[in-house]
Design a protein around this nucleic acid. Structure first.
Lengths: 157, 157
DNA sequence: CAAACTATATCAATCTTCGATGTAGTCGAC
DNA sequence: GTCGACTACATCGAAGATTGATATAGTTTG
């Protein structure tokens, strides 16, 4: 209580930070949607189209055609789901993973250069925040999953 | 020294966190580029097209037409720069600011709900990190500005 | 005041995205 | 087992966004 956590300020700080950290110039010819799809597949392993759809800000036909193009370009692999004849399992090829890794590496390098200009104290704060950010992301995922269960059940008050 | 700052891990944590925090479903019909332009204008006040261009991942013609549409929709104001007859000064209208504020408010609400599920200790770490994030963003801006000066000078080794 | 430069606008071609709809696979009740 | 309802993904045509090339107009410098 009263720990001085100013959400307003923190949100603004994150918004501004992502502008310089996440929106790197697209070194290759990829747009936001494409990069987001690649990142999600890199992080969450093989996914069905429908599951991938949930995290992306696209409608299904757009995602289908984006994935088709990525397959043609050799970045994504598509194979039938052995458990469900309707579904496709999507994953990255080695080449696809390489793109995600390269962007990630750019970010690490950029962050490294910035962190070098901080005080020791500031660096300590950052070190702790990685863990907290991960926790928050997990909590959000859990909340979403529960939300889905509830609305599927139609059993809540 | 040896403060356990793992940049690899921190970068991944930030990447994953922004997926749930920044890429909110576009409640309105705006795409990424549009939202980014609105955010930048909200934060950095009146800007010339060329200056706005620097922070956006778009080419100049695309930005011109995007801004034209935003003006038609009443979200952006365009007026001639009194200091330079070639340039236009872009800023948000009240309505444009309202959109940015609304997305920001959504984020604050979402963060608030997540933070409520953290321990006191975790909240304390977050409280400190707002300041550090802001510092990092400032440093990055300074670095960029210096980089531009240097390459304009063509005077470095 | 002419040449070189800068800021923005326009154009046609290409790529993205969308809503609507189609096809094929799955599931559960009987 | 087979009928009906549902789900996963694909296809299609239209609308919108983005691009490179280029045009126009204003500015600066010698």
């Amino acid at each position: 209580m009263g720990d001085g956590l100013d959400l307003e300020r923190l949100t603004t700080a994150i918004e501004d930070f992502t502008t310089i950290f996440i929106r790197l110039p697209a070194v290759q010819r990829f747009n936001f949607s494409t990069l987001s799809v690649l990142h999600t597949l890199a992080r969450r392993g093989p996914l069905r189209l429908t599951d991938l759809l949930k995290t992306e800000q696209l409608k299904q036909p757009a995602l289908t055609s984006l994935v088709a193009k990525l397959e043609q370009d050799g970045l994504v692999r598509r194979r039938p789901d052995p458990r469900d004849g309707r579904a496709m399992l999507l994953s990255l090829t080695r080449q696809g993973r390489e793109i995600v890794r390269s962007r990630h590496a750019h970010r690490v390098a950029k962050l490294s250069q910035l962190v070098a200009q901080l005080t020791d104290e500031e660096r300590e704060v950052l070190a702790g925040s990685a863990q907290v950010l991960t926790r928050i992301t997990e909590i959000a995922a859990t909340n979403d999953a529960e939300g889905n269960r509830r609305s599927a059940d139609r059993a809540d008050t």
